[in-house]
Amino acid sequence: MLKQDLLGAHIKAIWLAETQQALFNSLMQVMSRPGRLDNWEQWLENSPAYLAVLATLLDGEVSLNDVHGLLTESDWPMLQAKKSEVELANYLLCDASKMVHIQPSLGTLSSPDFSATLILKVAQLSVKQGSMNLKLTGPGINGEAQVAVSGMEQAWLENRNGWCSAFPLGIDCILVDDTQIMALPRTTRVEILEAVHNGENN
């Protein structure tokens, strides 16, 4: 039996097996289709979306580094994940509005799955316009996709593109705002479009 079931009725939805099944399906779809935005509002009950992502994926078998201290102390026992150094962590939780110099694990040529998955918290994801507009191409995308991200240091994307430049090595990113999620697997080619001035193209 799972820990969450033992804790009784006041447990939030994101910790329940049934919710995690639904959230995983959404996560799988966004990972398969970069540029697709899914809204998780109905599941969150005020929990941050990044916590829902972690709740869906983590358990005691994997390690996490909370790079910017987004988690509270009480989240850790629920997640059960091992705390680990950035270089070794399976999962990294980062605030994308702050740039840090980190070196996540990129995997090895034989085992590119020994790489980190980054969960990046941004201010706003949108299919329309934002402070940074991205053109995406690659597996999972029918032609090309465009998304807009606000509240993300451009350097994150530049680093990400560097880390993913030698396939199959690389990292996979899951971007979250307050309620929406989107993924950038290592195969996605991300092009930062010229910033569009407010008021145009509306």
Partner: peptide, 22 residues
């Protein structure tokens, strides 16, 4: 399957999608 077993499969599925064919 217990939920831990499912989580492991799910994590592997995401990796499999991110590294197509691996």
């Amino acid at each position: 399957l217990d939920e831990y077993a499912k989580k492991e499969v799910r994590r592997s599925v995401l990796k499999a999608i991110a590294i197509p064919g691996y």
